[in-house]
Structure formats: C-alpha cells, structure tokens
Amino acid sequence: MTAYTVYLEQLHAMLAAWSKEHQVYVPTAVEGGYFDFKPWREGVEIAFDYDLAYNTLKRYFLPPKEDLVVFDLAAKTAEMVFDAPKQLLFGVHPYDIRGINQLDQIMETGAPDQYYLHRRDATVVFGLTPMRVAETAFWSSMGAGEVDRGFDLFWTKTGPSTFLVEVGSMRGEKMLLAAGELTPASAGAREAARKAHLKIMEMGRSNALNFDWKQVPRLLDKCWNSPLWQKKAELCLACGSCNLVCPTCYCFDIREEADELLQKGVRFREWDGCMLTSFALVAGEHNFRAKALERYRHRYMRKGKYIYDRYGELGCIGCGRCVRACTTNIANPREVFNTLWEASQHED
C-alpha cells in the first residue's frame, strides 16, 4: 500500500479543504467522558485517542429515520426520493470499518438497498488506528482488529505530531494530496505504525473471548436449550437498545404519513430491532417470538450464527456498544459466549 507521512500542522488545511465539498465528521469528547462523532468546524478538537464512538456510525448510511417514497393520493403517483449528502468520516476504528463492510455486503445482497448504497457511495471513510480500548470492547478477539478494505485512507498516529497515512482508494489519495505534495513514508515510519498497531492489539487482549471466534457458530448450534437464555431474559426490558446501538444491526420498519390536506404523503423507514416485543408480530395477532427468552436467544443466534451461515463472518465485531447500552447488564456477547463455552467444556 502507498503510504505518506503527514504532520499535525498540515492537517488543518486539509480539513478545511475537505469541508468545502464534504460534511466532515470527527471523533470528539462529549459529556460524561464519552466520545462521539460530531461535525467538524473551526475549533472542534479531534480526539485522536478516543476509545469508542458512543453512537454507532451506521446512522450515516442507515439513518434512524429516512424518507423512501413520496406519493400523491389524488394523482395515484409515487416516486422514490434519495438523499445522499457528501460526507467524510474521519477517524473510524478498524472494527467499525468491519461493521460498515458487513453492512455493505448485506445491503448489496439480494435486492440491493438503493437508499443505503447511495449514501454509502457518497461517504468517504478515513480509518484510524485506536490508541485506547473501551472497557466494554472485545474486538481484538473477534477478528476485527484489522481491516484491509472499506476505507479511502487509513491513519496511524506514530508520534506526538506525525501520522502514517496509508492509501485505500484513488479517491482517498486525491483528497490527501489536494492541499499539496507529501513525503512518501519511510521504512522507519511504516515500522512505527506496525508497532502502534501491535500495541493496541495487545491492549485489547485484556478483555477477550476465551476461545477462537470461529468456534462461536458451532457452539451456538449446541446451545439452543441452554438455561442461560431464560435466566438472562428475565432481566430484559425489551428496550431494543442493544439492537439500535449495534453497527451491524440493520432492521427497519416501514410506515407512511399523509399531509394535512390528505392529498400527498411520504413512506419512510425507521430503525427497528428484534428485541422489541412487536418485532415478530404478524397479521392475526400471531407473534412468532412472543417470549422474552425467544427474543433474547434470537439476538445471539443472529450475532453468532445466522449471519455467519450466510456471509462467513460473525454478526458481532466486538465494539462493546451493546454491553454499555444495556441498563440491566445482560447484553454482553463476550460474556454470553464465554459462559456457554465454559458450560460446553464440562459437557464433553
């Protein structure tokens, strides 16, 4: 991969240049000691050492609420509406890029989701090697600490004011060089970046899955009747927080609303989640996952098996957002998988 050395003092001019054509979002400190992506403007301080973006970045491709079709009841016409603003996500961690890559794959499969793909195409992703690991995260053991595609540039902070920037796409390289020529990275700079990466992978290991993540689907195959599901589900609030904060959850509901004159209207979609009680409610008041246990187990099956069966990777990248979001502390995939693994070791 082509790589350049960039100095901190060069960054400001770059951000200003990118902002002309894109809405730039950067990680920054928010209340309570957390971090989140916010629009960059003059004076916004970028938190290069952020541990985890509080909100999932999927909202930039799959917004919480999105208009799909406008219709006219009198004229009996309907038309798709697309809104895909040019945006740049600066500083996305590898596990979150993995999440985006997985969503890309899911949204492209079958009937491609035009709305998602329009937004995705209009979005530039600049990756960033993490410098800290969130307390709830376990991505290093989920095979999500590394990423080789899905970004336009990848940044690693190699010194107090130096970055090694790897090129992931022509679009990215063009943007990087827009403000002027840069020095190609030396072998020493590449080595520094490699060390930074190894260091963070090592830090990530303190909170890990106790076994190879590739075993998760097979483990779940054996655990359909585990008593763990019921025990945990008793504490479930059916609040959907674990679904909605998850970078790889993509479920939505479709509804419509007419205007005040009842002549025109809009069909839109909104985030939905399988932990909500009416998610699997169908005509005739039949609910195929009416019990908390069924919903609770379903989410782990999705994360650890169903997505794997279809796409060859786990539906969980180990970001740890659901762990943080669950008020009753039961939405922790690492803990659940480890507990099931432990129990299965005693069975054989």
Binding site: Y34, P64, K65, L237, A238, S241, L244, W271, L276, S278
Partner: peptide, 27 residues
C-alpha cells in the same frame, strides 16, 4: 408500544444511566 429508549437511541443521546442519573425511559 416500545419503550422511550428506542427513540432515545435514535436521537443519539447519552443514556442517563451512563451519567449516573435515573430515567424511566426503560419502561
């Protein structure tokens, strides 16, 4: 028919519990 937490997550708020505060959005 779902709890306020759903809309709170859509809004992108920091959960009150993550700030050491109380909230009835869960029910």
């Amino acid at each position: 028919d779902y709890p306020v937490c759903v809309e709170c997550k859509k809004a992108g708020n920091i959960c009150r519990y993550d700030l050491g505060r109380i909230c009835l959005g869960t029910i």
